[in-house]
Design a protein around this nucleic acid. Structure first.
Length: 649
DNA sequence: ACAGTGACTTAGCATTAGTGTT
DNA sequence: AACACTAATGCTAAGTCACTGT
């Protein structure tokens, strides 16, 4: 390990010292660890380092640092690190050829709590008569009962799938008796669960506190792992509980039983030299493997689609953070060659070869409209959704002229998560002519790009730029749009709330580009009304304040003494304050209204280079907390650390 | 080619936690 | 202290894309 020297600059944060070290190559931030307020963590762009006190910083970081009781002493020492001490930090070892870690230790997953049988007074009725179910059948019945209020329990496919899987869990006797789902009465069970959830809400503070503490203990025990020299947060350390599968949209498998996962289904991944996690007493793991070419800690095969599920690290972890950073660096490389690529595909619209024309038009859509690649899917296994390469003739309509524009393409299809994509776009004449050609002599359910798939497209992209794939365009266009919109919308004159509105509008432009929609929140109208009444109240308050100011002024004119002049000043300030509050509320209302059906979170978390936002915050003196909440700041720690106000995507 | 698999990112909604108000 | 509402977090489905073996 190479040792680096640097200066430590002191800042204050949450009453604890925060030290930033900013050498040429590395930025290091040392911060309080949420898990343990007395231990501090240092970060670099390239990984996470631990260190403890000035005496210890020159020594090598140690494995299992957190388990080492000798560092107890650090506790009182660290928060008062002197100003500008020189510390040594180590460059983290970088891995090559697919190695993701050298050491990995964790406690394994937390299993779903075992089934708790219903109390005897809660009955299931078949054909009007009470019927005691076997434990297995009862458990599956409760899954249905818990969903009774949902619309999808009325759907045919849901009911059919559920009933089929439920019957598999029944005893022979139950099977022969229960033959018709419409004769099943789950209402008593449903009521019982509703009552239970009410009871949970009504729990005393103490009981709630106890549960919270218990959760915290579980988190501390199972929610972290040691990866190389770092204690990292695990994202989803709890195994998914059994239940009824509900896919998104029109899913052919909705209602199927999602099996309970047992230790025997679990593959554990950790390093050979680590303390392996123990399976629960009396059970065993399916397998313990030591594959350091992958990042997951635990995996199992899910029974609905037969796909593999994983337990992986939290976005704040080194392994995820580095990958994220890398993603944006790839998008920035695209920025350098995007003009060339655009010229290229425009040329290709004229190609003699059909496959090249199709590829070029598809790429144009991906670039211009931020469409997803669109892998082909197995029919009947999932909801019928498409992306660019899997578009069918039925998904677009061509209009030589529409609403005063020429060559308009109307898109209407269901994309990822069965979210509808609807858009009318004028395109270039060549694209339009090509589309007509692609659609010639085809049925509605034929592929629009019959000579193209994502594999062909990505192979082509790879040749244009190292690491280029279809999704890089989404990242690139999202980030560049944010940067450009921020430049355009931010007004120097405006105050912080107005600037934040501008930020959200820039963010919104991206969300619209990427088609990130949401169902309007159920409480939307209500909360809008509440805000409006707040605004009205504030207006009244402002009128009052103004009236008072006026009378104070009049008073001062007559009395001409110091005291009344002072009173005028006070009133003036009051008016100003109320005006500002009113303005803030109005901005908030605008923001919320514009955001009714648009989800900003997805783009913020996955598409926008966080350094653009950090730079913007620094440039305009906006606290980064206004843009990123705690979790987001943890995820983007590398960017907060790295970007200065001049950062250009 | 191309089908199948595995690993990983992206996605919206449901639930929970937190905060301000009465 | 109870309540109402908002914001944050948790959950897990559904994508992307590389790789493998044929």
């Amino acid at each position: 390990m190479r040792s680096l020297d640097g200066k430590v600059k002191k800042e204050k944060e949450n009453g604890f010292a925060r030290y930033a070290w900013t050498p040429h190559l590395f930025c290091v931030l040392i911060c309080k660890l949420p898990a343990d307020p007395f231990l501090y963590k240092a970060s670099t762009h390239f990984g996470w380092l631990f260190f403890c006190s000035p005496q210890h910083v020159k020594s090598e970081p140690e494995d299992n640092f957190y388990y080492s009781p000798k560092y107890e002493k650090v506790i009182t020492f660290l928060p008062c690190l002197p100003h500008s001490v020189r510390v040594s930090l180590w460059e983290e070892e970088r891995y090559t050829d697919g190695v993701k870690w050298k050491f990995l230790e964790h406690k394994g997953p937390v299993f779903a709590p075992p089934y708790e049988p219903l109390p005897s007074h809660v009955k299931f009725y078949y054909d009007g008569k009470p019927m005691k179910l076997s434990l297995e059948a009862e458990e599956v019945a409760t899954f249905f009962a818990k969903m009774l209020d949902h619309e999808y329990t009325t759907k045919d496919i849901f009911r059919k799938n559920f009933f089929k899987d439920w019957r598999k869990e029944m005893t022979a006797e139950e099977k022969s008796k229960i033959t018709d789902l419409t004769k099943c009465d789950f209402t008593e069970m449903s009521e019982y669960f509703k009552a239970q959830s009410e009871a949970r809400k009504a729990m005393t503070k103490e009981d709630k506190q106890k549960i919270k503490e218990e959760n915290e203990r579980t988190l501390q025990q199972y929610g972290f792992c040691i990866m190389d020299n770092h204690r990292e947060r695990i994202a989803n350390f709890r195994i998914e509980p059994p239940g009824l599968f509900r896919g998104r949209g029109d899913h052919p498998k909705m209602g199927m039983l999602k099996r309970r996962i047992r230790p025997e289904d679990i593959i554990v991944n950790c390093s050979k030299d680590s303390k392996h996690p123990e399976p629960p007493p009396g059970t065993r793991w399916k397998e313990v493997r030591h594959d350091n070419k992958v990042t997951w800690l635990v995996s199992w095969t899910e029974n609905i689609q037969g796909s593999i599920k994983y337990i992986m690290l939290n976005p704040s972890s080194r392994i995820k953070g580095e990958k994220d950073w890398q993603k944006y660096e790839t998008a920035r490389r695209l920025k350098k060659c995007v003009d060339h690529i655009r010229n290229q595909y425009r040329e290709d619209w004229k190609s003699k070869e059909m496959r090249i024309r199709q590829r070029a038009v598809a790429l144009y859509f991906i670039d211009k409209l931020a469409l997803r690649a669109g892998n082909e899917k197995e029919e009947g296994e999932t909801a019928d959704t498409v992306g660019c390469c899997s578009l069918r003739v039925e998904h677009i309509s061509l209009y030589p002229e529409k609403d005063g524009q020429e060559y308009v393409v109307e898109f209407d299809f269901l994309g990822k998560d069965s979210i509808r994509y609807y858009n009318k776009v004028p395109v270039e004449k060549r694209v339009f002519k090509n589309l007509q050609l692609f659609m010639e002599n085809k049925e509605l359910d034929d592929d629009l790009f019959d000579r193209l798939n994502t594999s062909i497209l990505n192979k082509h992209l790879q040749e244009l730029m190292d690491g280029l794939t279809a999704k890089v365009f989404r990242t690139y266009n999202a980030s560049i749009t944010l940067q450009q919109q921020l430049k355009e919308l931010t007004n120097v004159e405006e105050n912080i709330p107005a600037k934040i509105l501008s930020y959200n509008r820039a963010n919104r432009a991206v969300a619209i580009l990427c088609n990130h929609q949401r169902a309007p929140p159920k409480t939307f109208e209500k909360s809008m009304q509440n805000l409006q009444s707040k605004i009205d109240a504030k207006r009244d308050q402002l009128a009052d304040a103004k009236r008072e100011l006026k009378s104070a002024k009049a008073d001062a004119k007559v009395r001409k003494d110091e005291k009344s002049k002072k009173a005028v000043e006070t009133k003036k300030k009051a008016v100003q304050r109320v005006e500002e509050q009113l303005m803030k509320l109005e901005v908030q209302a605008t923001d919320r209204e514009e955001n009714k059906q648009i989800a900003l979170g997805t783009s913020k978390l996955n598409y926008l280079d966080p350094r653009i936002s950090v730079a913007w915050c620094k440039k305009w003196g906006i606290p980064v907390e206004k843009i990123y909440n705690k979790t987001q700041r943890e995820k983007f720690a590398w960017a907060i650390d790295m970007a200065d106000q001049d950062f250009e995507f």
